Computed example of a mutant assay.
Amino acid sequence: MNLTLNNGVTMPAIGLGVYQSAPEDTTAAVETALKCGYRHIDTAAAYGNEREVGEGIRHSGVDRDEVFIETKVWVSDYGYESTLHAFEKATAKLGFQTLDLLLLHQPAPERFDQTVAAYHALEQLLADGRVRAIGVSNFMPHHLENLLAETEVIPAVNQVELHPYFTQPQVQDANAKHVILTQAWSPIGGITFYPGWGEGRKNVLQDDTVARIAKAHGKSPAQILLRWGISQGRSVIPKSTNPLRIAENFDVFDFDLGTAELNELSGLDRGVRNGPDPDQPRPEMFSRVIPEA
């Protein structure tokens, strides 16, 4: 199943995420995913495994043109020239000359002038044909409005934390207003281990409502949550290095959730994020150096 971005580029609705996948595990996970049928891989400079993602794609035997590759620029590389160089670092590590989707990883509101300059670099890369689509990650509605006021190209994608316990309706509405695709990281709510954030987290995979709906369909809770996201028109990028779970997470196209079930899942929203607040200053982000290729 593909989704069409606002510039006409198509992107597979489900992709493999590799956040917190150790480099030594990433190559095999990507290879496994592609052999299971995935055609979309999401990584980032800050994950430290772009090189292994490229190796996994090559090991899979799947042609580069069949794989949608998405990565992100880290905030310490924001700024026009620095972001252009960040693209060079990413493509050199991946081993491919072009990218399908390039995102700014955080809004970094305390240095938003650098964020805007970085996005101008993305616009140039798009104009040059070096990326097929550009976008943002973790942008709240006010971040989007501030960016759009100073740039020309509307982001194709906004990747944010989104699962039934944290549905971010205002973000989804803002994205829809500008025809920006909402992409969910942590789509099954499993990323609950950000140090210092979201104390008292609860994992939606263990929710009784999810378990009941999963039992009714003969599916796992993770499959129900992924189908919920896809059925509402979102892109989802579940993360796993376990071959069985990688395959299970892709096996979500042979059943449908009813309207009542979709609404019941959306009604689980607690309004509490598991990950960091994009508006909370984190000066340490800017001191992290992304290595050269």
Score class of each variant (00 low, 15 high):
36 C>N: 10
175 N>C: 15
246 I>C: 03
180 I>K: 06
117 A>E: 15
273 R>S: 09
23 P>V: 03
280 Q>Y: 08
240 S>D: 09
28 A>P: 04
13 A>F: 10
109 P>G: 04
265 L>N: 11
143 H>E: 05
97 Q>T: 13
244 L>D: 11
16 L>Y: 05
132 R>T: 01
174 A>K: 12
74 W>N: 01
87 F>I: 05
250 F>V: 03
191 I>D: 09
239 K>S: 14
107 P>W: 04
200 G>D: 14
56 G>Y: 13
4 T>S: 06
4 T>K: 14
95 G>P: 07
149 A>H: 08
212 R>S: 11
224 I>T: 10
109 P>R: 09
59 H>Y: 05
86 A>L: 03
159 Q>A: 01
157 V>N: 03
145 E>F: 10
289 V>N: 00
224 I>Y: 09
264 E>C: 07
169 P>S: 02
66 E>M: 09
120 H>Y: 00
23 P>N: 04
214 A>Y: 07
195 P>R: 04
276 P>M: 06
25 D>W: 00
140 M>N: 09
105 H>R: 05
98 T>P: 09
167 T>N: 14
192 T>I: 12
284 E>M: 00
219 K>S: 11
5 L>V: 06
180 I>D: 01
49 N>I: 02
220 S>H: 13
100 D>F: 10
239 K>R: 15
81 E>H: 12
122 L>R: 03
200 G>I: 14
173 D>G: 02
50 E>F: 02
76 S>Q: 00
57 I>T: 14
155 P>Y: 11
